[in-house]
């Protein structure tokens, strides 16, 4: 067992973990943050995407011990529990960008990262290319693409970006 200290959703966390613990296991099993999902074992589906130091990262392919001192943001931390939704969350709901909801947290975290890197005016082509690492089996992506474009626009000037990037 080894200790790791990091910040998760703005709160300091210290955990004693088996070295083989992945970030997604730390989140789901130790911290009971079960919004981050696991959909594959080859790092391709993107259901597990969170932000590490402000950047979209597949939490199934990072060891918890690699994150000493890191700042991690998960879907649960994107908006305050009692506050308004993040504009990207709102856009997914408004545009019916989800069905079963399983890939959704990873999609939303990826979407916020796309806006960080590519700005608020996103064309369909860019969004589709940027979603290369996220698989959705329900929606056919049509509404996810719409949602991300709308969410990106709504994030302009809303002050809502990735909190972990601060």
């Amino acid at each position: 067992m080894a200790a790791v200290s990091l910040t998760v959703n703005g709160k300091p966390v210290t955990a004693d973990v088996d070295p083989r613990t992945l970030l997604v296991q730390l989140l789901r099993e130790h911290l009971r943050l079960t919004g981050t999902h696991v959909g594959c074992d080859t790092s391709q589906c993107g259901a597990c995407v969170v932000h590490v130091n402000g950047k979209a990262t597949k939490s199934c392919t990072v060891l918890a011990l690699q994150l000493e001192g890191a700042n991690v943001l998960t879907i649960e931390g994107l908006a305050a529990a009692d506050g308004p939704l993040h504009p990207m969350q709102e856009a997914f709901r408004e545009n019916h960008g989800l069905q079963c909801g399983y890939c959704t947290p990873g999609m939303i975290m990826t979407a916020v990262d796309i806006v960080r890197r590519k700005g608020n005016d996103l064309d369909d082509h860019t969004i589709r290319e940027e979603l290369e690492g996220n698989i959705c089996r329900c929606t056919g992506y049509h509404n996810i693409v719409k949602a991300i474009a709308a969410g990106a626009r709504a994030m302009r000037g809303s002050g809502a970006t990735s909190r972990a990037a601060e």
């Binding site: 789901r28 943050l33 079960t34 919004g35 981050t36 999902h37 696991v38 998960t74 879907i75 649960e76 994107l78 908006a79 939704l85 969350q89 997914f92 709901r93 408004e94 019916h96 989800l98 909801g101 399983y102 959704t104 947290p105 939303i108």
Partner: peptide, 20 residues
């Protein structure tokens, strides 16, 4: 109508079997 179930899914508070 926008979906009633979406809030839990977009906030990561749904409960799938493995979450239990």
């Amino acid at each position: 109508v926008r979906r009633k179930e979406d809030r839990r899914f977009i906030t990561g508070t749904g409960h799938y079997t493995d979450d239990i």
